[in-house]
Design a protein around this nucleic acid. Structure first.
Lengths: 316, 316
DNA sequence: TACGTGCACAACGTGAGGTTGTGGCGTACC
DNA sequence: GGTACGCCACAACCTCACGTTGTGCACGTA
């Protein structure tokens, strides 16, 4: 393809060969092979050089696209001056949605999204420069932020109850967290020691809930399947979580009020990271575009340990 | 890249090897070569298979893009069921703009734009199935449409006068064609026998103009350069023509009125072409979205030979 | 007609990339 | 904790894809 584009630009096999630092004969062979593979003639050979055929004209923009895609692919892993690389806790969860918003707002910023195993791996990756930022809850006991990293609250995601159509609360417009003490909350697959576990531990302690984490995590589909059929089981889900459920299956999201628990997503980055796009991301996420009200705000609730990354709170 | 994507999907070198019909060792070598080329590790090898590193995760979507681009490139020249291929007379002229509009309105339609040498080549290409349609003026003497082709008027593009800031008409809001008999109109590079030549011949005859076609065509830039500095020279330009002029250079477009000459762009296609997107293109272009008023319409002018492709006019 | 220009074909050599065979390492299982 | 298994890496070998040089042919031009 590179040869093809070079010839189309140069107009002569020989010039393209010089550009590619190979012989004219090699260019001729490459074109012959390509034309044989594709089954069409790409150039008309004239006495003054080579001109694109109709098929060649049609192919040319696609060939350029291909080369651009290759350049982007290589650039995405080039150390130094690569695209902004951000870790999210899951591709269907709110942080990925925030990044999609950012990408829509700043289409010029090259963005790569990755998913690391846990907060420790994320912090290590940020400190080593492997990734530029992470969006996750920070401050949980046992998962302290290293000193050379900085964090700022981006989004307190309202937590909702997810229940099937036969559940007692199925038709409730909203429910208070304390009211859930009388119901079964089931969240299989929550790994102890993670920030998720710390958040739901704090939530359970604050409102006297019992959250069952028993059962292996077979993935989202069996969980939703079970929920849809159950009269007593419900689970928590973030407002912006995308459910991989074909048609909804009768599952409903029930808002929590009085207070409304929020999951505290923060942007984490290295204090010394000079990546220009990082500032743009920080501005986008932490400029109050996504609401976060803090634990003291009326009607909202977040864990105590999450308050450090709120605006205006200085660490140390 | 294909190997890389296959491994990322399969999770194991061996499975990817089976998928690609090569040995596991070959896959291992490909990955090793790729990692050496890029200078980064793409997979972490575990006892249960291979997992993507952060760099691998960042690369994966770009690798998929690359494969998609390759598939599109190959498909663009595949005989049978390829993208809709339309010939335009120039990439900066109105027909290309119409196709951009169409692409915006129907982003799902794969569209390839090519440029053929003249009407004869275009008709041959359409009849042979090499291209699906052409947008050009048809009906000019000597360039009759073959019987197996059909054409429909798409757009009567208003013709404007293009003049520099020192030209006598520079500050005229609009001018009548007949008034231009007293001025020099210069259009170098108009090839005799083309539809362009036929159109401007008809225009000159209708309003008593003298159009100078002397001088070789050195491209658009020298022409515009000369125009910008001239007190007496002006040229005709289509309303939607994109001028490759850095800052306008003081050039101004002066509308023509009483009557307003229009250049009659028609869509040409083969009567038997079953390409599904062709119907969509025809609907888009010929549904009156772009005005065309015909030679008899008050205030407008097109050559007599252009009337056959107007709506409601049956051929033969 | 002779010459210059530009692509194609032929013969040839080298190395990229495939194969088979084998070894090391981590995990799981008894 | 020994052992068996699964999976990837290394080594040796082979082959053919692809580059090279040399030459021929077609076309346009002086």
């Amino acid at each position: 393809m590179r040869t093809f584009v070079a010839i189309a630009g140069a107009g002569r096999f020989g010039d393209a060969a010089a550009e590619l630092s190979i012989t004219q004969q090699a260019v001729s062979k490459r074109v012959a092979a390509m034309e044989k593979d594709l089954g069409v003639r790409l150039f008309t050979r004239t006495a003054r050089g080579a001109e694109l055929t109709v098929d060649g004209q049609a192919l040319l923009p696609h060939a350029r696209d291909l080369l651009r895609a290759e350049a982007r692919a290589v650039a995405s892993v080039r150390p130094g001056r690569r695209a902004l690389r951000v870790d999210v806790i899951g591709r269907r969860l709110a942080p990925a949605g925030l990044l999609r918003d950012f990408h829509r707002a700043h289409p010029e910023v090259e963005l790569d999204v990755v998913t690391l195993f846990d907060a420790g791996a994320a912090f290590d990756a940020i400190r080593s420069g492997t990734v530029d930022a992470s969006i996750r809850a920070v401050g949980a006991p046992g998962g302290q932020l290293p000193d050379d990293l900085a964090a700022a609250r981006a989004y307190d995601e309202p937590i909702q109850l997810l229940a099937g159509p036969y559940h007692a609360l199925a038709d409730a417009g909203a429910v208070a967290p304390a009211e859930l003490a009388r119901h079964r909350i089931w969240m299989p697959g929550i790994v102890p020691g993670t920030e998720w576990a710390a958040y739901y531990d704090a939530l359970a302690a604050a409102f006297g809930l019992t959250i069952e984490v028993t059962g292996s995590d077979f993935g989202a589909e069996p969980l939703l399947d079970t929920l849809a059929a159950s009269r007593s089981l419900a689970t928590f889900v973030g407002e912006r979580t995308i459910l991989s459920w074909p048609d909804g299956g009768g599952l409903r999201r029930i808002a929590l009020r009085d207070p409304a628990p929020g999951y505290p997503h923060s942007l984490v980055w290295h204090r010394d990271n000079p990546h220009p796009a990082l500032a743009a991301l920080r501005d986008h996420l932490c400029a109050g575009r996504y609401g976060h009200s803090g634990p003291g705000a009326p009607g909202a609730w977040t864990p105590d340990w999450a308050r450090l990354q709120e605006p205006g709170v200085k660490r140390r």
